[in-house]
Amino acid sequence: MIRAKDDYRSLNGLQKAALLVMSVGEDTAAKIFQLMHDDEIREISQTMANLGTVNATVIERLFVEFADQISSTGTLTGTYESTERLLSKVLDKSKVDQIMEEIRGPAGRTMWDKLGNVHESVLANFLKNEYPQTVAVVLSKVKPDHGARVLSMLPEAFAMEVIMRMLRMESVQKDILDDVERVLRNEFMSNLARTSRRDAHEMIAEIFNNLDRASEQRFLTALEERNRDSAEKVRSLMFTFEDLGKLDPGGVQTLLRNIEKDKLPIALKGASEALRDLFLSNMSERASKMLKEDMAAMGPVRVRDVEESQLAMVTVAKELAAKGEIMLSDKKGEDELIY
């Protein structure tokens, strides 16, 4: 129980957080709780219940410290490392590790939101080794379109077992749901967080994608001389302008609606005939004719201008793919997709 001014120094971070929440009033506290996970609310609530009587001077010091820290901070830069350092000052290592694993994992407030952001092939690969009943619970909780993609990737006999369990399943009891969440958190999400750090080859490929063609080739050649395997992996991960030729008609039309119109004739001026025909065939006859006339009228174009326009189109394509509006085929195989 905190009774005297001198006791303020002995407060840990959780106690300070509990005091702060208690001091801001019920309406504000309710809004704060809405932004927290259930386990965070439980921890703070437990601490609040055990605080006892708190001296007004202690609360005043708490707000003075809080205000001082906020006003003296200046520009804030949040990183995984700074967050981990801060948590380490108030929580034990095992708790910090658990929180950081969740942060590094897929986004989402609840476990089911997080699963919705896990690629279906990754989730299916994990679930195929679980009990059919566990998989049935998971598929009943995620969005139907995501569940359908996961189900299609499971072994057929196993998938049918899951379907039969889902047909017989009524409302899922809370203790069963809690058990499934615990398995997913401890066995799947924690491992996913450890392995989801960005691949270095992917990072280099993205950088190389933004180089002009001469610099790109120079660096790739130099990398190939030092480490052929790494060079091949980077090359396979790179997405180039010519790869837009793998877009389906709907994807081409979506891209055409989103790019700057003055970039298209310059970009296509340096494109292969097949890629040029793909874009022209997905335009109206009038628009196609106008584009051809624009390309013919502009005469010779500098290589640098062509490359800049092509890079701009690739960038827009990647942004659309990230939003799920188009699908870009990966060089690894015709059936694999980049989102």
Rank of each mutant, 00 (worst) to 15 (best):
I70W: 01
N55P: 03
H119N: 08
W112A: 03
V96F: 00
F126D: 13
G74W: 01
N117I: 03
M166I: 06
E26A: 06
L51S: 05
S71H: 02
H146P: 00
R109D: 11
E102L: 09
E161R: 13
A124V: 11
E40P: 08
Q34F: 00
E65M: 01
R61M: 15
S72Y: 04
G105L: 06
I59T: 10
A124Q: 11
S121L: 09
S72Q: 09
R165I: 04
S71T: 04
A157S: 15
R104F: 00
V58A: 03
K141A: 08
I103S: 00
R85K: 15
V64R: 09
A159D: 05
A56D: 06
E156C: 05
D27Q: 10
F126S: 10
E156F: 08
V135K: 10
G25V: 08
Q133I: 06
I99C: 00
A124I: 11
E130L: 05
E102M: 11
Q98T: 13
G105C: 06
E101R: 11
V162T: 06
D92E: 15
W112E: 15
N50A: 08
G74Y: 02
Q98K: 09
H37C: 01
G116C: 09
T73F: 03
V64E: 07
V135Q: 07
E130H: 04
H37S: 11
V58G: 00
P132K: 13
S45Q: 09
A124W: 14
E156S: 13
R42M: 13
N129R: 12
T47V: 13
D38I: 10
E81S: 09
D38N: 11
E156G: 06
S94V: 14
F63R: 02
M100Y: 02
